[in-house]
Design a protein around this nucleic acid. Sequence first.
DNA 1: TTAAACCTTCCCGTCGCTGGAAGCTCAAGC
DNA 2: GCTTGAGCTTCCAGCGACGGGAAGGTTTAA
Lengths: 129, 129
Amino acid sequence: MNIGTASEKSGLPPKTIRYYEEIGLIRADRRMNGYRDYSEKDVRRLHFVHRARDLGFSVEECRQLLSLYDDETRESAEVKAIAQTKLKEIENRIAELVSLKASLEHLVRNCHGDDRPDCPIIEGLAGRS
Amino acid sequence: MNIGTASEKSGLPPKTIRYYEEIGLIRADRRMNGYRDYSEKDVRRLHFVHRARDLGFSVEECRQLLSLYDDETRESAEVKAIAQTKLKEIENRIAELVSLKASLEHLVRNCHGDDRPDCPIIEGLAGRS
DNA sequence: TTAAACCTTCCCGTCGCTGGAAGCTCAAGC
DNA sequence: GCTTGAGCTTCCAGCGACGGGAAGGTTTAA
């Protein structure tokens, strides 16, 4: 099938699919006319990468996961380790953002927000700390 | 003062300070020898940007905030609006990550993680959904 | 036949820097 | 005076993960 159909089935834009091919993530056959030709199996792999990306895995991690996906002799422990690492990263990122949110809320709470120029937010950003 | 000193005082790497100048965020005087020359006021502005970036504001938002910082006739309402918008963005991002975390946790929880190849994480990523 | 809808490759832009190369200036030690 | 090393300058390239758009070939439907 053509890239457009593979795009619809996998949910990935054609541009992204071509990019994945360029970086060697998912290759495609070629027809006589130079068009890429995708099999159902290719589409499943594209779909797999799509979901993994949505779950926060980097393209390089997707490459790892894809090779595990393809590997019938994989150990689930290896997959789990990758997922757990990613989970920790997400948790760390959340913690960072929550802390940011608290700082920003503190500033916003103290700003009266009217037509006067004195502003605790500006002062907070300028702060000597 | 030279860029190195301004860097130490503001906490921003020299490369970053040069970059900010390149994009017209914070300009510097020049000495006879071509070296950049920073005043204490410049350093305060660099520091301001540093803090704003740390709080999650984009460089373009820093540009806005900086012009408000400089503007003695600003209305604090305008600053507050920017901060509130950013706060919403951070909250949205947190919500996204929390949902991601839940999905990933669900997969990880169901994976036994041993030497066998069957793996609910891989299956979840491949999932027909 | 012709127009629209696909497909191809190629290159540039995004965002916010960071690294490195090549070359100039300055301060300190001998 | 000379050298060494640190610090400064500019410029170019690259990161991640694409997206936009140009220029051109192919296919399909009317």
